[in-house]
């Protein structure tokens, strides 16, 4: 684990999935939280990915993932 903190659920279990490269320089990195499945690019505006800056309405409570409904149940 990279220890990168997820801006949506604040878990510290995000992994790096891809880096955008130009002439050997890293332009951005895409991260994915393995707890809440949020993914983001570190070049995005703080309003979307800033810890404590993002709208709280879109936060996910990592301790309460069971309450999210499962689609297509038999």
């Amino acid at each position: 684990m990279s220890g990168t903190i997820c801006p949506r659920c604040s878990s510290s279990d995000a992994v790096s999935d891809c880096q955008g490269m130009e002439d050997g320089t890293v332009i951005w990195t895409i991260y994915r939280c393995v707890v809440c499945c949020f993914s983001w690019r570190d070049s995005e505006p703080p309003s979307a990915i800033g810890l404590g800056v993002r709208s709280a309405a879109f936060a996910v409570d990592a301790a309460n993932l069971d309450h999210y409904p499962k689609i297509l149940q038999q």
Partner: peptide
């Protein structure tokens, strides 16, 4: 690209 600002991913 993220289509809307608060989409959960790409």
């Amino acid at each position: 690209y993220r289509i809307n600002e608060y989409d959960g991913g790409f």
